[in-house]
Design a protein around this nucleic acid. Sequence first.
RNA 1: GGGCAGGUGGCCUAGUCUGGAUAUGGCGGCAGCCUCCUAAGCUGCAAGCCGGGGGUUCGAAUCCCCUCCUGCUCGCCA
Length: 571
Amino acid sequence: MKVRERFAREAAEAVSAALSRMGVEAAQVATEVSDRADLSVPCFSMSKAAGMAPKELAERIAGEISPSGLIAGASPLNGYVNFAIDAEALARETLEDILREGDGYGSAPPSGLRVNVEHTSTNPTGPIHVGRARNPIIGDTLARCLSRCGHDVTTEYYVNDVGKQVVVLTWGVENVPEADAGGADRDKTDHRLVPYYREANRRMEGEPEVQERIAEMLRRFEAGDAEVIGKVRETAEAMLGGLRATLSAIGVELDRYTWESDFIADGSAARIVSELKASEHAEQTEDGSWNLDLKDFGIQGKNTRFTFTRSDGTTLYTTRDLAYHMDKFSRSDRVIDVLGEDQKLGSKQLCSALRILGSDRLPEPMFYSFVSLPEGKMSTRKGVVVYLDDLIDEAVDRARAEVLSRRPDIPAEKADEIAEAVGVGAIRYNIVRVQPEKQLVFRWEDALNFDGNSGPYIQYVHARACSMLRKAGAYSPDPDPSKLTDELEARLIRSLSRFGEVVRSAGELRRVHLLPAYAHEVASAFNQFYAAVPVISSGELRDARLTLVECARTVLRNALDCMGMKAPEEM
RNA sequence: GGGCAGGUGGCCUAGUCUGGAUAUGGCGGCAGCCUCCUAAGCUGCAAGCCGGGGGUUCGAAUCCCCUCCUGCUCGCCA
């Protein structure tokens, strides 16, 4: 157990002991962390049982507690008992832990739990645009945190290669002449296919005979026509190649790609259908389609029906999604779906259907709001869109210009490498920074922010620490807390010691936005220390201070890694 | 119309689950700081009826009710 946990436990026990000495029946002792004290115990809820005002109770309790173990002291203030941690013990243990564990600092031991994180899963009908860019970034960050929580994490992308939109695209690729399709925005498979998709949609809307041909293709697809299914899969694969290149550019690599059509091919979707039909909630309408009545499952609104087969008996997306989830349950202990907010109802219906199927397992959905443009919602079909590829290029270009102007000494190749790390880092940080459910309007000036609470700020501090260690040369690590007594040093160490609990919350509670807030706290504490405390020329304190710099660098590198950001050693 | 989410200084945002001590941080603005380890930095200042109204409570940004604004959603689409 780490210092902070032991401290929290000791403080809670000290309060309990004090209360029982005072003859007060203690319920439970709550502790909270704030910037006012290392740990606080509010006395408000206990004051009734104690028969005295919170303020008085806090004073009495604090009077009962004397320093021991990790508790350096307890003082009453405004109805709180504020605990101070033994700063030397905290510093020594924290620095020793970081030196010993290095890249592994902040990681929990293996839990043996298999966690599946499905994210991105955008339809293979167009490039990823910034409206949906939160999905891979949140999903990948969450997966990285969960890995550091000790779990065996699998990330996966569910490829929707079934349905009308991919068929329309496939028809377009085969039938729209290149000349009619118009040029693509960039030479990358996903972008090259966009003009065909747009033109196919345009024709389908305007030309009844095109509409009929696409409908025919769809019928053959549904009927299991191997030729059509093969062509559609081929188009989807081509598109996916482009999407994967984009994901790779922002540091997102998925472990697994699962194809929707496989659940038709292997018969599992059909099995789901027959199981559902046997349920008491299932009913068939006059035209032959089947649905579940979910009014008993907390689904509200005028339509509580969840249709799971068409009148011709074919399956629907949601039916196949059920098969997919059963599949995921069979190979993982915990299933997390990172979904756009448009999937909220669908996800709820899915969970109800899973319960009807007798599943005792449910996915944990995590929703994010779409990013919109100042002029409104993004749409690839309408061309109102900013592609993630364009955002990446823009961010990297801007980062390159910054590097070149600040560091004319750096060779071009190195500058490119830094620019890539910084540009991508700025994008990722900017997205995980805000709570996923918050609506976001995309503005270039925000997306490309390199100052203040930004990705580059964190990376800069890391690079600064690297630079100091480089300049200092060899030194002997010295985690002696008696040499690190400056208030700014103490504050930095306190921040460093919190990394593990932050990763735990970010992962287990799926609150990934805690990570950038924490990284900013550490970086900011480092900068204040840096500005006020000399390190390299500090005589006998030099080794101790360099040790602190090295530990801060390690924690920053680990935090950046959790966010999928690179940690350049200079910039 | 129903359901679900969001509404916090000019702009963006934390805190809301688990009510508590002077509401977090950033951008922008203003004023300072490179003869010291990277100024993508540091210091200070100005700026808030926590959408609005009721209620519960010793105490509400946080809980309850009502209401307004924004987004999403209510397919034999995916």
